[in-house]
Design a protein around this nucleic acid. Structure first.
Lengths: 215, 215
DNA sequence: GAAGTGAGTGAACAACTGTCCTCCGAATCG
DNA sequence: CGATTCGGAGGACAGTTGTTCACTCACTTC
């Protein structure tokens, strides 16, 4: 057991990761359906044919990128919603998580925003699946909230989707601020607007039952 | 004045429109940055070089498509918000407008959703500009509402952006239902969810001041 | 009715694409 | 230690791409 069981397999995963990184970099200024296989292998520094040892085509690479971009976020979102006590604290830290994630992995976020409705079906479906999971997880987290007692599962899911959509849109909006004149100020404005909007949604949530009973 | 002042100019605009239509069709299954100039001219049936008589490049064509897809919508949104009396009626008809527009011009909607965060900067900016206009128009329409009296312009704009984002997301979600098993049922579900969510936002709006004064 | 304009043509260009095939050589296995 | 697996190299293939240039010829203008 002294040898790290697989010098070969380790090297394979290293070039696989290099392919993913190179693709992600190139995708900052174009979309997946226009990305070339040779373009990717060229920046990695390997022969074009070597690509096929790792992915069937660029769509498969795209799906792997989706997993890399969104897969690790599930645990984070879950802990945020559970650990924080109080609605206000939850909103702040949820928005903060999004803000931080965009700052740390801007290329991943840009990729997801771009390919969510992009030209490659398999990638679209992968992203849709991940966002669907987010919706379900948030909905489940909401069931433990005191403000959501007595709510039906359907309504909780719609509310959760509203939150998730708001956060995704916020992430994309934060990215767009990079083009602005005073980027950091614009970014702060977007983040503050997101907090305000989510707060308003929670207020709607708190008064929902009363309104429903009146109608 | 018997001759329609410009047989030549009329023909030019006809092929220009043919280029836009052909591009829109091809863009149903790919994104703009992967669309080929020759691909477009081939489906129109003209020589590749004739393209340059109408657009400098495909980016310029994309910007024209944005105008075609979103430009006509401003008047419609405005009349919906003014003519309808009562919040509930406004929500219903706003969602109905979106639903109808997606049904009538699915390719245009798909194009906007795809290129909103797509790989061509000029097109992204054109879409962002149009959505910004929508936000401003909805905000202005809200100022005449009784429920918005006493609200600051900033808050009204954030609220308006929340509505606009919700409608844009809904349009994209409706498009995605085309892949579902029972497309029409899924579509109805998405539309109903949108109505529910917007209703919840308006409830938040109605109780906002009370909450703000408490804090 | 002659001169001029300009949308569309067609050939040619170098550069690029994805995929096939054969081969190499180092890590793995028995 | 010999046999085998397999990540990667390299050549070759037929297609495609955007852009150039000189051109035609129906329409417009004077």
């Amino acid at each position: 057991m002294s040898h790290t069981v697989g010098v070969r397999q380790a090297q394979k995963q290293r070039t696989r990761q290099a392919l993913l990184d190179a693709a992600l970099g190139l995708l900052e200024e174009q979309s997946l359906s226009s990305l070339g296989l040779r373009e990717v292998t060229r920046t990695v520094g390997i022969a074009p044919t070597a690509f096929y040892r790792h992915f069937r085509d660029l769509g498969e690479l795209g799906v792997a990128l989706v997993e890399e971009a969104l897969g690790s976020l599930h645990a984070m979102v879950r802990t945020v919603l559970i650990e924080q006590a109080g609605v206000e604290a939850q909103i702040d830290s949820a928005v903060a998580v999004v803000d931080r994630h965009v700052r740390e992995y801007p290329a991943h976020v840009r990729f997801v925003a771009r390919e969510r409705h992009g030209g490659v079906r398999a990638v679209r479906q992968a992203i849709a699946g991940q966002l669907d999971r987010f919706g379900a997880e948030v909905a489940e987290a909401l069931t433990t909230q005191p403000t959501a007692q007595g709510w039906g599962a359907d309504d909780l899911r719609k509310l959760a989707d509203l939150f998730v959509d708001r956060l995704v849109t916020t992430a994309a909006a934060i990215l767009d601020t990079e083009d602005a004149e005073d980027a950091e100020a614009e970014r702060a404005r977007v983040v503050e607007a997101a907090r305000w909007q989510i707060r308003l949604i929670t207020i709607g949530q708190q008064h929902w039952r009363g309104e429903a009973e009146e109608g």
